[in-house]
Amino acid sequence: MTGTRPAWIVLDIEGTTSSTRSVRTGLYEYARPRLGPWIDAHPEDPEVRDAVARVRAEAGLAADAGTADVVVVLRRWMDGDVKATPLKTLQGQVWAAGFAGGELTAHFFPDVPPALRAWHAAGTRLAVFSSGSARAQESWFRHTGAGDLASLVDGFFDTVNAGAKREAASYRRIAEALGAPAGAVLFLSDVPAELDAAAEAGWRTTGVRRPGEPLEEAGFGRHRVVASFGELDFGEAGFREPDLGEPSFGEVR
Rank of each mutant, 00 (worst) to 15 (best):
A218K: 06
S22H: 13
L61A: 05
G235Y: 04
G238N: 05
H143D: 10
F156M: 11
A193S: 14
G219E: 12
G245C: 09
G102C: 08
Q137A: 06
H42M: 09
A100N: 09
F141I: 05
P33A: 01
D154P: 13
F220Q: 00
P46Y: 03
R210G: 03
P242V: 05
F249Y: 15
D111I: 01
F187D: 06
Q93W: 11
P33L: 00
L188F: 07
P181Y: 09
V73C: 12
W38P: 04
G36Q: 00
W140S: 13
D154H: 15
R54H: 11
A168I: 07
R75F: 01
D196R: 14
L152K: 01
S133F: 00
L195I: 03
Y171K: 11
V112P: 00
T124C: 13
A193V: 14
A51M: 04
T67K: 12
R24F: 15
V191N: 15
L35D: 00
A134F: 11
I39P: 01
D196K: 11
V48T: 13
V160A: 15
L87T: 07
S131C: 10
V160Y: 05
T67E: 09
S228C: 02
E176S: 15
G80M: 10
V10I: 12
I174N: 08
R210C: 02
W140M: 15
V71N: 02
D243E: 15
A31L: 03
L11H: 02
P247M: 02
P113V: 04
G250C: 03
S228V: 01
T67N: 15
V71A: 05
K83C: 06
F157D: 02
E200N: 08
G250Q: 06
D64S: 08
L178N: 13
F239C: 09
S228G: 04
R75L: 14
V55N: 03
F239N: 08
T20R: 06
E44H: 15
I9P: 11
F129D: 00
E47A: 15
E44L: 15
S170F: 10
E213V: 04
E176I: 04
G179A: 09
R24H: 13
D148L: 13
S139W: 03
A68K: 12
F129K: 01
V73E: 14
Q91D: 03
R5E: 10
T17Q: 04
D69M: 06
R210A: 02
P211K: 03
E241L: 15
G212A: 10
D40K: 14
F108Q: 02
A57D: 11
D45M: 08
S18Q: 02
P214E: 05
P37N: 05
W8N: 01
E251C: 12
M78K: 04
G250A: 12
A62W: 10
R54E: 13
D148Y: 12
